[in-house]
Write a protein that binds this DNA or RNA. Structure first.
Lengths: 225, 225
DNA sequence: AGTAAAACATGACAAATATCATATTTAAAA
DNA sequence: TTTTAAATATGATATTTGTCATGTTTTACT
């Protein structure tokens, strides 16, 4: 089992604030696992009781609406922690986490890390900072959902995917996102998402090849209304 | 100047985790102030550099969208802390705070409380809990905005206002919320908010008298689609 | 009280989005 | 490979929501 000390993840997330000793202890009890694309890591309502470190891959966090539709609330990517809120209080997961591609993750039980949260102010501060950033981001998402058109939101998702995951050798978005994922992310019907992607294609902002998408004019996309 | 120790606010928010000594020090540097309905406490982009305790009254936190509309993101009420995120990191306010009615608030400078955050794990934990709850709430708001109809969202706001502020002697909602506020809270045009309130009136869920609103059938409202 | 301004209300119409139907293409499985 | 299922695409139409116009009521101010 690899040590957290050597793991690249350490450089990205709140674990970097832990001391060598703390990291060694965490290392010794963590569970490393591989998750295949489409598999569920945890579901809304379950108790999570620990945090996951994303070593590679990405997942979507979503919630089932009362109308039966899935709403993607955010994406969690390599270097992020997943399930931080399970460390605080004892409530069950509010969201469902499903892998967008093959992932490698480490699970650290709450019991092993909860003391660090109480005793290491750097660690709790780092979690605080992360949550403050998440809240700021949520505010912005709420405003976008409430005030912007579906076309505008789809354009923003394209830009976000481009910035977050980059492109492959041929210039296609490096993450595979189905039309349904687009719809569930911006809160619209799948057909509407498809229609708008077709429209963006006709307008020359993107090109597609199968389900692969290439952004051709990112500045234009930013100005889409 | 009144002491935090004796203030009722102490019982509601994160300040309750401070020791007697810490509270005394905070007390000695806080600034108490009265804010009139409609006045701005701070604006998006400003640096806040401290937290406000809401002793009485309530305010709305909103953000200006790129389309020029105001989006209300959340309400902050008596017993809540306002501007907690200013304690973490050093970023400027993401939201604008405007009083919904006359308020009495206390301002505690960041410099006086930042040490407690680092040294008193109970205090930082209390802030963490609050932020975790806020995040959970934001998730739910995002889902509602993305998936529910305007009518449904207006109905939910009515229920929320009822639960949060209660009613006056005659049964009217104890908070005055303009039609524009309703619109800005659910992300719709003012005319649409007006229309839907009229509709809810016709359907017998609410009655109005001037801008006062009385909920007549809360169970019915919960079932509105 | 009288006047102006703001808030509320409602009709008519336009635009955005959802829904249903039905192809077509792509991916998965036998 | 062949077959089947899933994802993508697009038209037709219904529904929801926004916009503009205009009138009424309420509130604020002198």
């Amino acid at each position: 089992m690899s040590k957290c000390e050597q793991c690249i993840i350490k450089q990205f997330n709140a674990l970097k604030t832990l001391s060598k000793e703390e990291l060694l202890r965490v290392s010794s009890c963590k569970t490393s696992m591989f998750i295949k694309k489409g598999e569920t890591i945890f579901e809304e309502g379950e108790s999570v009781n620990g945090v996951y470190c994303i070593k590679s891959g990405a997942c979507k966090l979503s919630k089932l609406s009362s109308n039966g539709r899935e709403q993607i609330v955010k994406l969690v990517v390599k270097g992020d922690l997943l399930g931080q809120r399970s460390l605080i209080g004892s409530e069950s997961a509010n969201l469902t986490a499903v892998a967008l591609n093959d992932m490698e993750i480490c699970f650290i039980p709450k019991s092993e890390i909860i003391n660090d949260l109480a005793k290491n102010p750097n660690f709790s501060n780092s979690i605080l900072e992360q949550m403050a950033a998440d809240l700021r981001n949520s505010d912005n998402v709420i405003v976008n959902m409430a005030q912007k058109s579906v076309k505008n939101r789809i354009a923003e998702v394209l830009i976000y995917l481009h910035e977050t995951f980059g492109v492959d050798e041929e210039g296609f978005l490096a993450i595979q996102f189905s039309r349904e994922d687009f719809a569930n992310f911006v809160g619209t019907a799948t057909e509407s998402a498809i229609r708008i992607l077709s429209q963006l294609k006709k307008e020359g902002y993107i090109t597609t090849q199968g389900k692969l998408i290439k952004i051709e004019n990112i500045e234009g996309l930013k100005r889409v209304e």
